[in-house]
Amino acid sequence: MTFLYELRKHGALFVMALPALILLVLFNYMPMFGVILAFKNYNFYDGILGSPWVGFDNFKYLFKGDAWLITRNTLLYNLVFIVIGLILSVALAIILDEIRSRFLSKTYQTILIMPYFLSWTIVALIFYAFLSADKGIVNQLLSYMGFHPINFYTDMTYWPYILIFVFFWKSVGYNSIIYLASVTGISPDYYEAATIDGANKWQQIRYITLPCLRPIIIIMTILSIGKIFYADFGLFYQVTYNSGALYPVTQVIDTYVYNGLVTMGNYGMTAAAGLYQSFVGFVLVILTNWIVKKVDRDSALF
């Protein structure tokens, strides 16, 4: 009954949502039956529905060998990416918005998003040009200054820093666009009023800009928490050249799954990995969303 009532009252809204809902069903929910692959030993003859069930067998390899190390790496890198990424992107957006020259601000923006458009293969190649043992620019400099060259791709000490640097180098400019657009959406009336009250620029940022950014910051954080068990494959696989000697600090869930399954092409085990990663993210998001709801109802995701 409520449904019919709603339909009459908000008919237009249903129509507006319809195209999106159709797309969701066709491209997301219809293939969703495939999650059962995670519990099956898939063979093409019996098909997805007919293949034999194997319980949780497909998940076992995710908890074997270096599982603990891999999970730790994935989590720690993502935490750094989320927290520092947030601070950097927001700071960059505010700075770009506040500096006095419009022209320079636009120029900086354009340049800072450039690295985002390079594929990981090209990024890997570029950093290889700097770090390679025989011909790398860094090592040429080191030996020119009389230091011992460093074989970066077999020495894991530097890689946590290198990976974090590469990640932010590639993405921070692009990610700051969301906050930049958000900052520009804040009504100028607020600032005008604050100026009249005699607030200086720092106070304006502290008391107007940041509070106005709060909803988008919360949403962005919730969304990235959902992906906390996923790692950027290109960053950890290609930029490191999948170099074995670096594994203790570079191996993450996604590279582990890839290295383990690439020769076998086991669809069940691939599905299991995805389900595991999603499930953990899902639980964390529900939890975060629940907390956010308690504090600030309007900022919650759903």
């Binding site: 491209f27 219809m30 495939g34 999650v35 669809y267 995805g274």
Partner: peptide, 21 residues
């Protein structure tokens, strides 16, 4: 609706089922 939308951000049927559909 927001939940149904968000759900697809995390869960998907995978390569082969999408291909079949």
């Amino acid at each position: 609706m927001a939940f149904l939308l968000f759900f697809t951000m995390l869960f998907n049927g995978g390569l082969v089922p999408s291909y079949i559909v």
